[in-house]
């Protein structure tokens, strides 16, 4: 819930900065750390019952921070860290696919239709896998100022956000049903 609040605040901040004609890329670059921490922590707890070790999450955080800082320095803190975002997306897609592999290997049957973890990961996979093309061509899309290229990125991320938050909302409903 706190993470969702941070997402809303970041989006509102981004809109505000854009309305006053100030670049909001650094705001979103800063938010990248929160996003990565949140999703990585979620994966850590998801995989914990299969691998109850915390070494890999520290290694992943270290790797992410190296990529993140290296790109920031390379960009002179001026544009959005899209390469780190792509790197992070790939890692999350692999983690999601690995989760599916664990499900298929798991001898214990679980009702996936009402499994919160499954739906959170579905949302993650849709968002990060679907945004790969936009992230890969980010450099092109950011420099192409034609309305069509701007709108394609806008529409894509709107669709991805709807998919992500729909899956997460459903996951919250499933979790709520499990508790009552």
């Amino acid at each position: 819930m706190f993470y969702m609040l941070l997402v809303c605040l970041t989006e509102l901040g981004g809109l505000f900065l854009r309305s006053i004609a100030v670049s909001n890329s650094m705001l979103y670059t800063g938010f990248l750390i929160i996003e990565c921490s949140m999703i990585s922590t979620f994966f850590y707890y998801t995989f914990y019952k299969y691998y109850p070790k915390s070494k890999w999450i520290y290694a992943w955080f270290a790797l992410f921070l190296i990529a993140y800082i290296a790109e920031l320095v390379d960009n002179h803190f001026s544009i959005f860290s899209y390469r780190t975002t792509t790197f992070m997306s790939v890692a999350f897609v692999i983690a999601s696919l690995y989760y599916y592999l664990l499900i298929t290997r798991d001898e214990k049957f679980r009702k996936l239709g009402s499994d919160p973890q499954f739906w959170v990961i579905n949302g993650i996979l849709f968002f990060y896998f679907g945004s790969t093309a936009c992230n890969v061509f980010f450099d092109y899309l950011i420099h192409e100022v034609s309305p069509i290229s701007q709108s394609i990125r806008y529409i894509t991320f709107n669709i991805l956000n709807i998919l992500l938050y729909s899956c997460w909302s459903y996951a919250f409903i499933c979790r709520y049903r499990q508790r009552i």
Binding site: N122, F129, G130, T132, I152, T156
Partner: peptide
Amino acid sequence: ITLITFIFLIAPLFLI
């Protein structure tokens, strides 16, 4: 880009 994004959305759907 649109086509790739579309494919990249269809693939997880089929996987799920």
